[in-house]
C-alpha cells in the first residue's frame, strides 16, 4: 500500500490524531498521563463503550442504525441482577449468560420489525428504546440495586483483574472484562471479514437490491444483526454493572449518540457498506482519551463536548469531502 492510499483511510487518520493528541498531553503533563495507572484507567473506560461500539459497527455497515441498545443493556443488567438476587445463585457466568440471552431476545424484537416489516431502523429502534426502558422502569422496577449489599461473587467481580502491576506506590490493575472486549472484537472481526454472513452484512449496506439479487437472505441476515447487537448490548450491560458495582435502571440510556459518534469517527459510513473493527476501536479510544484526559491539558471539562463535536464534524466531513473531490476528478477526466 502506498502512502497516498494509507492517508485516504480514515483509520490511519484517526490513529495519527490519537497519537498527536497523546503526544501533546504527554508533553504538557507527563507525570499524570504517562503512567501505567492512567493507561489502565483509559483502557477500563473503553470496555463498555467498546462492546456497544462493536454492535453499532455491525448495524452501521448493514446500512441501519440502532439507538435502542442502551435500553437493551440496562434491561438485561437489571433483570439479570434481580434474577440472581431472587434465586440466590450468585454466579458471574450466570449473570453473563442471562444478560446475553435477555439482550438477544430484545434484539430479535428489533429484528422482527426491521426484517419482516421492513420498517426504517432509526424509527423502530427509537420506539423500542422507549418501549424497553419504559417497561423496565414501570413493570420491573426503578430502584437502584447496589451489588455489594445483595451479592458477594458478583460484587467482588469488580476487583477481578487481568493484570496487576506493582508500582512504587500501590499497584495498577487492568480489569478482566478487557479481555472480553478483545475477544468480542476478534469475534466481530472474524464474522465480518471471514464469513459469508459478514459478506452479506457488507452487501446489504452497500446495495440492498443488489445483495438480494446476488442471493443473500436479507431477512435472515437482519435477524442475525439485530439479535447479535442485542446480545452484545446485554453483555455490555453486565460489564457495566460489574464495573460500577450497581444496577441503576437510570444509567446507560443517553450514551447512544456518543457510541455512534465513536464508530463513525472510526471510519464506518452511516449510509452502510463500510467500516472496520480496528477503526471502531480507535474511535472508541479517541473519544475516551478526550473525555478523560482533556483536563490534563489544562482544558476545563466544560470544553469536552465542544471538542468532541468538532471532532465528529471533521471526522464525517473528511470522507464526505473526499467523495466530492473524487467525483469532481472523475468528471474532469471523463
Amino acid at each position: 500500500m502506498n502512502w497516498r492510499a494509507l492517508f485516504a483511510r480514515q483509520e490511519f487518520i484517526i490513529l495519527l490524531v490519537l497519537i498527536a493528541l497523546c503526544a501533546v498531553i504527554a508533553i504538557i503533563n507527563p507525570t499524570a498521563f504517562l503512567s501505567v495507572q492512567n493507561l489502565f484507567r483509559i483502557l477500563r473506560a473503553c470496555i463498555v463503550i467498546g462492546i456497544f461500539a462493536l454492535g453499532t459497527l455491525m448495524v452501521l455497515i448493514s446500512g441501519g442504525i440502532d439507538v435502542s441498545f442502551p435500553a437493551i443493556a440496562i434491561t438485561a443488567l437489571y433483570i439479570s441482577t434481580r434474577i440472581i438476587v431472587d434465586t440466590g445463585i450468585d454466579s458471574v457466568p450466570l449473570a453473563f449468560l442471562l444478560g446475553a440471552l435477555i439482550g438477544l431476545g430484545l434484539g430479535l424484537i428489533n429484528g422482527v420489525f426491521i426484517g419482516i416489516f421492513r420498517l426504517p431502523t432509526l424509527i423502530v429502534t427509537l420506539g423500542t428504546l422507549n418501549l424497553f426502558r419504559g417497561a423496565l422502569l414501570f413493570f420491573v422496577g426503578s430502584e437502584r440495586i447496589r451489588l455489594s449489599e445483595v451479592t458477594t461473587n458478583l460484587a467482588d467481580a469488580s476487583r477481578l483483574n487481568l493484570i496487576t502491576v506493582p508500582l512504587a506506590r500501590g499497584e495498577a490493575s487492568l480489569h478482566f472484562t478487557f479481555a472480553l472486549l478483545i475477544a468480542l472484537a476478534l469475534l466481530v472481526w472474524f464474522i465480518l471479514s471471514r464469513t459469508m454472513l459478514g459478506r452479506a452484512i457488507y452487501a446489504i449496506g452497500g446495495d440492498r437490491e443488489a445483495a438480494e439479487r446476488a442471493g443473500f437472505n436479507i431477512v435472515r441476515t437482519q435477524f442475525f444483526i439485530y439479535g447479535f447487537v442485542g446480545l452484545l448490548a446485554g453483555i455490555g450491560g453486565i460489564v457495566f454493572g460489574i464495573l460500577s458495582r450497581e444496577a441503576d435502571p437510570f444509567s446507560i440510556v443517553g450514551t447512544e449518540l456518543d457510541v455512534i459518534a465513536a464508530v463513525v469517527l472510526g471510519g464506518a459510513l452511516i449510509t452502510g457498506g463500510r467500516g472496520t473493527v480496528i477503526g471502531t476501536l480507535l474511535g472508541v479510544l479517541l473519544i475516551t482519551v478526550i473525555s478523560s484526559n482533556l483536563v490534563l491539558l489544562g482544558i476545563p471539562t466544560e470544553w469536552q463536548r465542544f471538542v468532541i463535536g468538532v471532532l465528529i464534524i471533521i471526522g464525517v466531513g473528511i470522507p464526505a469531502l473526499q467523495a466530492l473531490r473524487k467525483r469532481r476528478l472523475r468528471v474532469q477526466t471523463a
Binding site: 449518540l257 452511516i270 463536548r305 463535536g309 468538532v310 464525517v316
Partner: peptide, 16 residues
C-alpha cells in the same frame, strides 16, 4: 454530509 451525522455533530457542538 449525511444529515443524521452532520446534525449529530452539531448537536454535540452547540451543546459544547
Amino acid at each position: 454530509i449525511p444529515p443524521i451525522l452532520a446534525t449529530l455533530g452539531t448537536m454535540t457542538l452547540f451543546t459544547g
